[in-house]
Design a binder for these strands. Structure first.
Lengths: 259, 259
DNA sequence: AATAACTTGGAAGCTATCTATCAATAGTTT
DNA sequence: AAACTATTGATAGATAGCTTCCAAGTTATT
């Protein structure tokens, strides 16, 4: 067997299994552990693998939504609390539309295994829920925006025209007195359609978003039914939000009383 | 912090990162490595994690397309050769529609990073190609069939009505004198639309599929432009295929001459 | 308040893996 | 064919992580 072929084989094995030990690989490919070590080191340098003591794990092709991975840790606890509060309002049998974003992804984690119908334009959410027997999944197609892995644009909008859901869970990147904002023009167009086809529009946002506008105006406050936000919200911002007339749900350990 | 909360945190950290070392976790959660070890051991028992020397990796919620994982190894080399032969016929700038399936997934791996437009109804393929700067991706929406993670049904069909692509790469599960077959009625309906919107229909199949019918009839031989198959095809089956009038491309180490 | 049961963090000794090195082999060039 | 280079497998010492055990701290129970 030629060296390059063997290297490829090593990468294939590790990537299909996700993780492989040195002994496994040496056995499978019938070469010494030394050789496998060198191959793993090679791929490690290339950035395709990550070595561990005794083996290696696959880290992907460098794709897989870098924007999501970076942000995934900031305000994670707050986002989880928000997701918990929002998901608590969803009943079995409901149809829910989930927008892309880290907070809605947390919500999807909590919905995993519950018997509901989920509609989403987010690839990470779809990948999470696909394969679940209990949860029905409808994926919104369209152009995939590579940074976050969401489907956007005319295809996506048109596909929603015949859809109807009980709730839409929306992510936004800015909230001011004037209304709600997001960072991408195609995205807000898609999200307006998401709002149109839902009985109830629920917006998920953490406290850092309040007071910050963003590139694209999404909608007025009157067009949303509920804003779920975390407890770290300053009183000043809270009163600002109160003035908008929006219904607020503060997520926290006493969130049950917010209903 | 209460023990259960910390355990959850350990699982969360490992699952979001995919892999975490003991030192990382101990640092992040501010407990001793001993405690982290015990937590990892706990989740390992539960089956949520896999321990390695120095850390742990996430093994998933048991979701993520079991049907794909099982089959992924059978005839893998043949499937790769078929994918290579098919992808060699695709030029930069082309628009290609990829059906779901393990062979088309291999084709997608080979297309990764090339500057083409890909349309697909397959979630695994979309997850692979999303995030790539060079490859444009259009996802076909619809009901997600949980076993294999492909979008099917009326939504999917309708979304293709305004699409046009240079090539469609199709998977099938059976080939006989009568024509081509697949295992799912909704799937063949979707695939017929995939054929309609392409200039050229290319079918990928390994030699084990020949002679086997499957539940759902897809189309006659006259409706496809090319069948790509591997070298292990027996002569008897080869002549049967020749009689159908289909153009054949045998994938192998001399595949360049097959063009 | 006192006891029991459990949890936690650290240390000792052990094991497994790593790195570095070297001789043998395979492949390439002159 | 001979010399040279790259690759491979094996070995030895160094290192890092594992298991086991124990004492201190925490929580629950009586």
């Amino acid at each position: 067997m030629i060296a390059e072929e063997r290297r490829q084989r090593v990468l294939d094995l590790v990537s299909t299994k996700g993780f492989a030990t040195l002994a496994d690989l040496a056995m499978e490919i019938q070469v010494s552990e030394s050789t496998v070590r060198r191959d793993l080191e090679f791929w490690h340098q290339q950035g395709n693998l990550r070595r561990t003591h005794g083996g290696a794990i696959f880290v992907g092709d460098g794709s897989n939504f870098p924007a999501l991975e970076e942000r995934i840790d900031t305000q994670l606890e707050e986002k989880k609390a928000i997701a918990r509060a929002a998901v608590a309002r969803i009943c079995d049998g409901d149809t829910v539309l989930l927008d892309g974003g880290t907070t809605t992804l947390e919500a999807a984690r909590l919905l995993l295994g519950r018997s509901i119908q989920v509609v989403t334009n987010s690839l990470p959410i779809a990948a999470l829920l696909a394969g679940s027997r209990e949860t029905d999944l409808v994926l919104l197609g369209g152009y995939i925006y590579p940074k976050t892995g969401v489907a956007l644009g005319p295809f996506t909008v048109r596909m929603m025209q015949d859809l109807h859901v009980h709730q839409t869970l929306l992510s936004v990147s800015g909230l001011t007195e004037r209304g709600l904002f997001n960072s991408n023009l195609l995205l807000v167009e898609t999200e307006r359609e998401m709002m149109r086809c839902a009985d109830e529009v629920v917006v998920l946002a953490d406290h850092t978003k309040v007071g910050r506008p963003a590139l694209a105006f999404l909608c007025e406050w009157s067009e949303i039914d509920l804003l779920v936000i975390d407890r770290k919200l300053e009183d000043r911002k809270k009163s600002m939000l109160a003035q908008t007339g929006a219904r607020l749900l503060i997520a926290g350990d006493l969130e049950e009383f917010g209903r």
